[in-house]
Every structure is written in C-alpha cells, then in structure tokens.
Design a protein around this nucleic acid. Structure first.
Lengths: 119, 119
DNA sequence: GAAATATATTAGTATCTGCTTGTATAAGCT
DNA sequence: AGCTTATACAAGCAGATACTAATATATTTC
C-alpha cells in the first residue's frame, strides 16, 4: 500500500536522503519501556484488563481462575504490573486486592479508542 | 505503600474473597498485544520516537546512525513496527521513508502525558 | 550492463522471558 | 500450637526474542 508514491521534494540533494532526526530523552524511554514491556505479555495484559474492568479491586484468587497459568505465574505477573506502576495493591486479611492506576486507565482507554476508530 | 489498608466491606462473606471479574474480548487483546509488544523493545521504541519526532518522514539510513545496532536489525525493527500498524512507509527512489500512524501518535502522547502528571 | 548504494531477507546464535515445580511466609481457624 | 488457605519467592528450563553476519533484491549511476 502506497509503496511507491512520489512526494514532497526530499530528493533535491543527492547526497543525503533527509535531515537526521532529533534526539530522544532516554530517561523517558526507560520509563515508557518499563510500562510497555509490562503490558506486552498475554498473561499480564489479560490480568490488567480484568483488574481494570472490576470497580472495587480484584483478589488474586479470582484472577487465577481466569487466566490459564499457575498461581505462581499469576503472582509473578501481578508483581511485575505493580513494579511498573500499573496497579496498586492492598492487603485485606489474607487476601490481596489489586486496582488499576491512572496510567493503566489512560493507556487502556487510548487502546480502546484506537481500536474503535481505525485510522 | 498502602499495603494494609482496610476497606469497603468485601470481607462480609468468608467463602469467596470477591466477585469474579468479567471476561475480556480476546480479539481486542490480540490486537493490543501486537501493538504493545512491537513498541516494547528498546530499539523499536527509540526508532518509533525518532520517526514520530520528525515531521516529514525519516529514512532508514539516518535511523541507522541513531541507534546502536546493525542495518539489518534496524530493517527488521522497522518491519515489525510496520506490521503492527505503527508506521507507514513509502519508497522514494532508493530510499524508504517512514512516518508515524495515528496509533503511534495517540499512544506516545498518552505516555508523554502520563510522565508529566504522575499519579 | 556493471558497480555502487539502500534496504530486505535468511540463517544462526546468545540472551531474555515466562512458565512450572517446590518451598517460604503470613494470616485465619479449631 | 497445629492445620489450612492465600500469596510470594527461588531455581531451573523450554521456547521466544533480538541481535549479527551473510546474502539477496532494487534502484541509481556510469
């Protein structure tokens, strides 16, 4: 699709193909990557969606039943989401409840919007 | 942080800890995951940032100089970004120019916003 | 058409990841 | 205290991932 459109006069000089792009803030990249890699996994993303769907916090025991991996795997996944700042957790008796952070809410909403109105 | 707050009366029944969370649309998950895993890599994310920063499209040759991997690795990375719908590409002579899609613009903007106003 | 340049593709490989199993910690129950 | 349940942690390992190096395909230029 549009593999061979001719455009906008960048071919005037034969020497370079375009101006080199500006630098990117590497701290920001590191932060973003932690979020993206935490979300970018089947198990963790599904857990995150479920946590975000529930209004009042979800406990690990119910999450375990929902995804198809071991209790240990769920625990590790949630831990990673927590470290990345995607969920908060609170202890209540012997159970632990997870809730989404604003980061999660914002990103999931963006992804939902994008899926709706495909470009 | 807030590891042991007591809250909201979910401990009334001793049998279950909470209501099981609702299901998640698995097609949506697959689409989102393709985007997230494509972005969730140092090389690819840096390339994406550089592509998004430039207004008029960036060619591979300049991207190569910017990140510290081989030409082949850059090509593979860009190809993956393209497959995930994060960039468009057009050929112009022997050069190929990459530009961000709306998906990229929306997600990067969300990430920028989140970094600004930490929750 | 041959050489040079720009990008893509293939194959091989070292590292990373995400799981399982087993064990530890902590809280509730009797 | 001892038993059970809920969650976390640690070690090990199979499979995925992201490079490099080598080669292929276009495109331009001579």
């Amino acid at each position: 699709m549009a593999e061979d459109a001719i455009a906008d006069g960048a071919t005037e000089e034969a020497e370079t193909c375009c101006a080199p792009p500006g630098d990117v803030d590497s701290d920001a990249i590191a932060i973003d990557l932690q979020v993206l890699t935490a979300m970018g996994n089947d198990t963790r993303y599904e857990l995150l969606r479920r946590i975000a769907n529930a209004d009042d916090g979800v406990c690990v025991c119910d999450l375990e039943a929902a995804v198809g991996v071991s209790q240990s795997a769920v625990s590790q996944a949630l831990s990673r989401l927590y470290t990345a700042g995607l969920v908060t957790r609170r202890k209540e008796g012997s159970w632990r409840y997870y809730e989404p952070t604003e980061t999660t809410a914002a990103l999931l909403e963006t992804l939902d919007d994008l899926r709706g109105t495909h470009e």
